[in-house]
Simulated scan of single mutants.
Amino acid sequence: MAFAGSGGRLGRRLLLGAPFALAAGAALAQNSGDIQFQRSSLLIETGGRELKFDIELALNDTERARGLMFREKLGPYDGMLFDFYQEAPVSFWMKNTLIPLDMLFIAADGTIRSIHSNAVPHSTDPIPSKFPVRAVLEINGGSARMLGIKPGDKVKHPIFGNG
């Protein structure tokens, strides 16, 4: 999935997806074309345990525009973290995204505010955050439910000042 905007960047409603497309540099990501996504890891605290995910970071408009578009697979504990640097309402879509994804909408303090499960590949329907968020984590569709991840759980990563 990629990020798409309605004219401005932050402070206005942000859309994520492909053709409105707006979606740093360590390792070359699989199937990411010429974009090199910085890699990191994060923890999700849920149900008294911590789940570790290896992630790619989408930190600028170009990276957010590409997102996970054109990927044919994603590892079971892999994902992409879209950082918007400040809280704002955001929305994503699935154009040019080949696999179903769960989207975890995360507040500035790392709290998961909402989850959209099993986003439909190739759909151009908007998927709004429902609340202003700092970041969005995309993981394999169905993983949040399978792993017991829910709103109110905490994401630990340096962008939230807790990782």
Rank of each mutant, 00 (worst) to 15 (best):
L43M: 11
L68G: 01
G75W: 04
A58Y: 00
I44G: 04
L68C: 02
A29S: 12
L42W: 03
L51G: 01
G67V: 01
R49T: 09
A58G: 07
L43H: 11
A27E: 12
D54S: 12
G33E: 14
E45V: 08
P76V: 10
L51T: 01
I35W: 05
E63W: 01
D61A: 14
L74V: 09
A65P: 00
R71A: 06
G67A: 00
E63N: 00
G48Y: 04
A58I: 02
T46Y: 02
A27W: 07
S40N: 10
L57S: 02
I44R: 00
E56L: 06
Q38M: 14
N60R: 03
A29H: 06
A29V: 09
G25W: 12
A29I: 09
N60A: 06
L74C: 07
N31W: 12
A24V: 12
G48T: 02
R49H: 08
G75R: 03
Q38L: 14
D78H: 14
L59R: 12
P76Q: 13
I44Y: 06
A27S: 13
I55G: 00
Y77M: 13
E72L: 08
E50I: 02
L42K: 08
E50Y: 07
G48D: 09
D61M: 05
S32P: 05
L59W: 04
S32K: 12
G75Y: 02
R64W: 03
L42C: 06
K52S: 10
Q36A: 14
D54W: 06
L51E: 06
K52Y: 02
Y77F: 15
E45P: 07
G48W: 06
D78F: 10
D78L: 00
G47P: 04
G48V: 01
F20W: 06
L28A: 15
I44V: 15
T46V: 08
S40L: 01
R64E: 02
A65R: 11
R66F: 13
L28Y: 15
E63Y: 00
G33D: 13
R64P: 06
S40H: 11
E50L: 11
Y77P: 00
N31C: 11
T46H: 04
S40T: 08
A26I: 05
A65E: 09
G33P: 10
L59Q: 10
M69F: 06
D34N: 13
S32Y: 08
L59C: 04
G25F: 14
S32F: 10
